[in-house]
Amino acid sequence: MKLLFSTFLVLSFVVIVSAQNTTNKQLLGNWQYTNQYGTSTLFFQSGNQLVLDGVPASYTASATIIQVFTDGQYWNYPYRLSGNVLSVTFPGGSVVNYKKNNSKTSSNTSIKGKVYLLNGTFCSYSGSSSSYSSYSSTTKVYFDGKGSFQYKSETSFSSNDGSYSNDGNDGVSTGRYDIKGNSIVLYFPDGTTGYADVYFKQDNGSISEIKYDGTIYAKNLCD
Results as ranks from 00 to 15, higher is better:
Gly171Leu: 09
Gly29Arg: 05
Thr41Gln: 11
Tyr164Met: 11
Asn169Pro: 01
Asn119Met: 05
Lys152Arg: 15
Gly120Glu: 05
Phe43Met: 11
Thr39Phe: 00
Gly38His: 02
Ser165Leu: 03
Ser40Tyr: 02
Asn160Pro: 05
Gly92Gln: 03
Lys112Trp: 01
Phe149Lys: 04
Tyr98Ala: 06
Tyr116Lys: 12
Leu86Ile: 10
Cys123His: 00
Arg80Glu: 14
Thr109Val: 10
Ser46Gly: 09
Tyr142Ser: 12
Val95Asp: 02
Gln32Val: 15
Phe90Leu: 15
Ser106Glu: 06
Leu117Cys: 03
Lys99Arg: 14
Asp161Arg: 11
Thr39Leu: 04
Ser62Trp: 00
Lys100Asp: 10
Ser134Gln: 10
Asn48Met: 09
Leu27Arg: 01
Asn108Glu: 08
Trp75Phe: 13
Gly72Arg: 00
Val95Leu: 07
Gly120Lys: 02
Trp31Asn: 10
Ser136Val: 07
Asn97Tyr: 02
Gln73Tyr: 10
Asn102Cys: 09
Ser133Cys: 08
Pro78Met: 02
Trp31Asp: 09
Gly168Pro: 00
Gly162Pro: 00
Ser148Lys: 13
Gly145Glu: 06
Asn35Ala: 03
Asn84Val: 06
Thr64Gln: 10
Gly72Ser: 01
Ser124Gly: 11
Thr155Tyr: 07
Ser136Glu: 12
Ser136Phe: 04
Asn101Phe: 06
Gly147Cys: 04
Val68Asp: 02
Asp167Trp: 01
Phe90Ser: 07
Ser136Trp: 08
Phe143Lys: 06
Gln67Asn: 14
Ser103Glu: 15
Asn76Pro: 01
Asp144Ser: 08
Gly83His: 03
Phe44Pro: 02
Asn101Gly: 10
Lys140Met: 13
Thr41Trp: 09
Ser129Glu: 08
Gly38Asn: 03
Leu28Cys: 03
Asn160Phe: 07
Asn160Gly: 15
Thr138Gln: 13
Gly113Lys: 05
Phe143His: 04
Trp31Thr: 11
Pro56Leu: 08
Val95Glu: 06
Leu117Gln: 13
Gly113Ser: 14
Asp53Cys: 07
Ser110Ala: 14
Gly29Thr: 12
Thr64Met: 04
Pro78Asn: 01
Val88Lys: 01
Phe69Gln: 12
Ser62Asp: 10
Gln36Lys: 12
Ser134Ala: 11
Gly72Ala: 02
Lys114Arg: 14
Val85Met: 07
Arg80Gln: 14
Asn30Arg: 14
Ala57Lys: 04
Lys99Leu: 10
Ser110Glu: 14
Gly93Asp: 04
Ile66Arg: 00
Leu28Lys: 12
Gln45His: 10
Asp167His: 00
Asn97His: 08
Gly127Glu: 03
Gln49Thr: 15
Phe143Cys: 06
Ser134Val: 02
Tyr151Cys: 05
Ser58Thr: 15
Asn108Ser: 14
Ser159Leu: 01
Gly38Ala: 03
Asn108Asp: 13
Phe69Trp: 04
Tyr37Lys: 14
Asp167Thr: 01
Asn84Ile: 09
Val85Leu: 07
Gly113Gln: 11
Ser165Thr: 08
Ser82Gly: 07
